[in-house]
Design a protein around this nucleic acid. Structure first.
Length: 203
DNA sequence: GCCAGGATGTTCT
DNA sequence: GAACATCCTGGCA
């Protein structure tokens, strides 16, 4: 702590930007969230990225300039939000996995009745739901003053408290880059759940 | 408390 | 047709 409160240059490489987004604030839907867990997706270099197989209508925002929101719909009912990083055309982004509500808690709890405060933004889909983020926010400029979703400077995080981990499920030939970043000791960071192949109900 | 399984629609092969 | 960067509910310890 104690470092000046400022946002990282989002046009830098995603693995550099991701840890520096911890502690930043995300304001939307009358609430402000302090980011506590993020995950980097490096586009062409990450088999787990939506953009790995190339540009599609769905992922075209990831290929655009940094500072925009890439919001996608998954599992039939959940929205997840990324912050596009890197230079134009690189398709890298940072998935916002978890956060803590620091402003507008009453609004958040009204939107999510019965949910404990620490669970409001514990998980990428819950974070979006609590903030009211959906597909209409796909591609918005997070740095524009008039945007419905804004990324703002927050509380600087002690680099020593930033923990990293390789993503399980992504096969790496040799060393695997630490894709996930989270603030140590944050109750809003959920334990990692190994990817399980879902068995679909037979038709 | 933890674990297993179902839900639900868009995207891509 | 199958996968999917997930969440919620119910059952059991």
């Amino acid at each position: 702590m104690g470092r000046p409160l400022s946002l990282p240059d989002l046009s830098r490489p995603v693995l550099e930007v991701a840890p520096r987004l911890l502690g930043a604030h995300l304001a939307a839907g009358g609430c402000t969230v302090r980011l506590t867990e993020v995950e980097a997706y490096a586009g062409q270099d990450d088999p787990g990225s939506h953009a790995f197989r190339g540009r599609t209508p769905r992922t075209q925002v990831m290929f655009g300039p940094a500072g925009h929101a890439y919001v996608y719909f998954t599992y039939g009912m959940h929205w997840c939000m990324n912050v596009v990083t890197g230079v134009d055309g690189e398709a890298s982004a940072v998935l916002l996995r978890a956060g803590e509500v620091v402003e507008g808690l009453d609004v958040a709890q009204a939107r999510r009745p019965g949910v404990r405060e620490r669970d409001l933004c514990r998980g990428p889909a819950r974070l979006c739901r609590t903030l009211g983020i959906s597909g209409v926010h796909d591609g918005v400029d997070l740095l524009a003053a008039g945007s419905p979703v804004r990324l703002l400077p927050g509380a600087a995080v002690d680099p020593a408290g930033v923990r990293t981990g390789p993503r399980v499920g992504v096969a790496g030939d040799g060393a695997v880059a630490p894709w996930r970043f989270w603030s140590d000791g944050e109750p809003t960071v959920s334990p990692y759940r190994a990817a399980v192949r879902r068995v679909r109900r037979s038709t």
